[in-house]
């Protein structure tokens, strides 16, 4: 087996916020009937977290699940346990109409932290980032400049971004540019 590396091999940048490649993350796309009890069990078995409601993200330790669309969830587990989690999902959903695929290597994840994270995202996405409108616990799939991305807050002052690995360098560049010192707007201050 070759050694897996994240898209930007842990690159980081210190600007108005700290931008860093969040490293390898196990991700499983899970599609199926979200209303079914088996789906709830599959998410619980794989991550230990509850099945997220509409536009929500749940977590348990270093695993979690995010609502992507009415029939799709993103299951997040440590990179090395993605295969194991996939087996648990397959077991829990046996006989159901569903689709579960390990997409860990198709994605890249970034983390930005600091006081100005809301502003950095607001510069790049058409999303209301004001406190109260976007808070930890919710996930938003949107457009980041020219590409698709999903963003959520792990806690106040920390935002994680997931995008396709093929555009990882582009997204990293966007984030660094938006966090360039001297570019503070202070809108959410």
């Amino acid at each position: 087996m070759s050694d897996a590396v994240s898209a930007l091999k842990g690159a980081s940048f210190d600007g108005t916020v700290t931008v860093r490649d969040a490293g390898l993350q196990g991700m499983i796309t899970l599609r199926g009937d979200q209303g079914s009890a088996k789906m709830t069990k599959a998410v619980k078995d794989a991550t230990g977290a509850a099945k997220p409601g509409q536009r929500e993200i749940t977590s348990s330790g270093d695993s979690g699940a995010a609502w992507m669309s009415p029939d799709e969830l993103l299951v997040m587990v440590p990179y090395d346990s993605a295969t194991e989690a996939l087996t648990k999902i397959d077991t829990a959903l046996k006989g159901e109409h569903y689709l579960a695929v390990n997409v860990s290597d198709a994605r890249a994840m970034f983390e930005i932290s600091g006081a100005g994270v809301r502003e950095v995202i607001a510069k790049l996405c058409p999303v209301d980032m004001s406190p109260g409108a976007f808070e930890p616990g919710s996930i938003r799939r949107t457009r980041m400049a020219q590409v698709a991305a999903a963003i959520w807050m792990t806690e106040a002052g920390t935002i994680r971004i997931v995008c396709f690995r093929s555009v990882a360098e582009y997204v990293y560049g966007l984030l660094c540019d938006a966090a360039e010192p001297g570019g503070e707007v202070g809108y959410f201050a």
Binding site: Q54, R55, W67, S69, P70, P126, V127, R140, R141, T142, R143
Partner: peptide
Amino acid sequence: PYCGVKGEETEF
């Protein structure tokens, strides 16, 4: 109507 997101036109 599916995800309840209020977004501006360029997201669609």
